[in-house]
Design a protein around this nucleic acid. Structure first.
Lengths: 407, 407
DNA sequence: ATTTTTTTCTCGACAGTCGAGAAATTTAGT
DNA sequence: ACTAAATTTCTCGACTGTCGAGAAAAAAAT
């Protein structure tokens, strides 16, 4: 409330609102936009006229008139209004996707990541090449790319596109802004991967529950552990955050983690940690760099057949996760927890430990066990989260720029 | 962004902005308001004229003209525009304060709390009586009381004035809304005590650092442990929350807590817990209901003289606090931590443990130790926090009501 | 008395939203 | 073929808001 309001700001907000409802519900007629936004028909006329003049939306070709009366003319975003490049960095590959302003996928490819630890500078070079390649393949002008949306596991600076810590590069910071800036004018945003999963799940949840949706957490299980939290803000927006959950302290002076600290949650619940426990390797052993999934599948199979120490490894992991989640719930309100990631295939083995770990805390005893659910297809959710956030950012930028630049 | 904007909303926001700057900087002239709010002089004229007509602000008596030119006329809130009752519930007393719209204390008294555990219903009755008493003493019309702002230690429902859990009444919920509603038309808000401390400290911090202020946590040490967090929101407001920190899990299957769960932070860092450790009572002993402060002072004195087990008790408490804080920092951004409450008198004994507990986590190793400071005079901060929040709420209510009621 | 300086108020321009009704355009009925 | 009904879109005038510029007010300095 520290900043003043003006009538222009009202128009901006309402313009963004119109674009957002167009995103949520697809191409809409004048009347429908008015219903959804609760803005008067006259206002919709004014706003859509502006947006059309600025070449942001267009009238769609008239579809078969259904019912009597003057036929509706649908409004939709102009595909060629601008483009978005989504870069998803995972432990073994980098996926590049080119998307148009309407959210439609135009081109996509993946590049294997070299496992060289020489790291940061070589990696940013490969990202530069990847970006140029997807641009070249599609023959789109570079200026038309309005936004580059990047995601990775790890800890991200909330205000700048800087990867502060990642399981891949450790604390070699990667600043995408400075790496891409002279070459690209596009805005660059960077988000934690699980944050995007949470954002996508939150959007789903809100579509179902409407105003009843309050908050949700996404827990991603894999080589490392990620957590994303979505909350509805008072004005109806979504506030998302990606805490450093995997490296939250589970137990003081506990097992050695990849990050060099002792007792992180990941040092009990990450894949390498499960392996370590299952093979009864001392907890202060420096953890394996990379654990083949097949190896963990074997342990899981043994655990399912009743092999004690294998089962114990998963149970131990579940306890760490459950304790950690209970601590998170002590700091937030009660919320459902969606579990994603490769690790969901071991959910049958983890579940009991998670629930027991949750149950050891005061909040859970008071408020009851939070709803736990499994959300498969993490990859799609990540991409969906990218689109949700990136297109919203583009809408806002385009509206404020359109107001200043005029035409 | 789900809700539409309109020109009336602009006026509302700007009116609230004017009232807020008047609160922050005391009585101001036309010109000064314009400078602080960045609103044009014409707009200030319009808004202040409205507010004056609605009897919310008034022109002050002209003070000695200083300097040449037309003398300024200061604008200030009308004291009699409305009143606020602040109710501070602590473990041994309830304090009632009557405050006018300008934030000036008019009357105050405290009532001893009966230590009867018969609890909730008798307690709400005593609060009803207290409220009527402070009203009667001041001869103010009941309708003029616009807000009753209550605080207590414990867990508070964020949307309704319901005390969900408190160290005093346990999980006997107290719903102040239903307890006071037929009798009082005033709005009723309830906040956690440490949340108010955090709010007050946040306001101070912002006055000093301005826009550089990002967030802050207040940790209250006493018979129970409280935590409040303030964060600046994107539009310049403050977002405060009071997590259930004292009963966050410190150690699975650890010491027995007053709440009945095992391993809460409070079961290591609350006063009774320090006593328990110092006297080497088993950790599963049901904790003492109430610990005289003198008892703890004795232990502290012994600890300062080098008595091992006494020192260990404080160190243990510090470790629990430090670990808990590190977990909080894993879920939020780095922020300074202000320590308040009676327990600050043992800070010399707790400090090492707190820092060690913090240092055991990944975040602290990465981002460095957060700034720790001691904020004395918790009682005043609580009251200040009440005023900050309550008067802001009144301002907003009065503006939206004034717009509708009109005159 | 006049000028200077500072503050407050007022006026016209401009931007935004809204409700009502006109205009447009199709289907149904005769 | 023509008219009536239905439905959507567009337009106009009223209202509310902010802003900049300059007029009016009021005291000190000359």
């Amino acid at each position: 409330m520290l900043t003043k309001s003006s009538t222009e700001l009202v128009r901006q907000r309402n313009s963004v609102l119109v674009l957002a409802t167009l995103r949520r519900h697809g191409p809409l007629a004048h009347t429908e936009i008015s219903e959804f936004t609760r803005l008067s028909s006259a206002t919709i006329s004014a706003i859509t006229a502006d947006l059309e003049k600025a070449q942001i939306i267009e009238k769609s070709e008239q579809q078969p008139a259904s019912g009597r009366g003057r036929p509706r003319v649908l409004l939709r975003q102009r595909r060629d209004c601008g483009y978005l490049i989504v870069v998803i960095i995972s432990s073994d590959a980098v996926q590049y996707s080119l998307v148009d302003y309407a959210g439609k996928l135009i081109d996509r490819f993946s590049e294997q990541r070299s496992h060289d630890p020489d790291g940061a500078s070589r990696f940013t070079n490969s990202v530069r090449e990847g970006l140029l390649r997807i641009l070249a393949r599609s023959r789109i002008e570079q200026q038309k790319v309005l936004l580059i949306s990047i995601s990775s596991k790890g800890l991200v600076n909330s205000s700048e596109p800087v990867l502060v810590w990642s399981p891949i590069f450790g604390s070699d910071q990667i600043d995408f802004e400075s790496a891409l800036r002279p070459e690209w004018q596009a805005k660059i945003i960077l988000d934690n991967e699980t944050l995007l999963v949470a954002a996508a799940l939150g959007a789903h949840e809100e579509n179902v529950k409407g105003a009843d949706f309050r908050s949700l957490a996404a827990l991603s299980l894999g080589h490392s552990i990620g957590l994303g939290i979505v909350r509805r803000t008072s004005h109806g927006g979504h506030d998302v955050s990606a805490p450093n959950f995997g490296h939250m302290l589970h137990m003081a002076n506990g097992g050695l983690c990849r990050c060099g600290t002792r007792g992180c949650i990941e040092a009990y619940a990450g894949f390498y940690a499960i392996l370590r426990t299952a093979f009864e390797v001392p907890l202060d052993t420096i953890p394996a760099k990379f654990v083949p999934l097949a190896e963990l599948d074997k342990i899981a199979a043994r655990a399912r057949q009743g092999h004690r120490i294998s089962g114990f490894a998963f149970r131990q992991a579940g306890l760490a996760l459950g304790n950690g989640l209970s601590r998170m719930l002590s700091l937030t309100e009660r919320m459902p927890i969606a579990i994603t990631g490769v690790g969901t295939r071991y959910y049958d083995l983890l579940r009991q430990g998670i629930e027991e770990g949750l149950g050891q805390s005061h909040v859970v005893r008071m408020e009851g066990m939070p709803e736990l659910r499994v959300a498969a297809d993490e990859q799609n959710l990540v991409f969906e989260g990218h689109l949700n956030r990136a297109l919203a950012v583009i809408d806002e930028d385009i509206v404020v720029a359109g107001g200043q630049g005029g035409d």
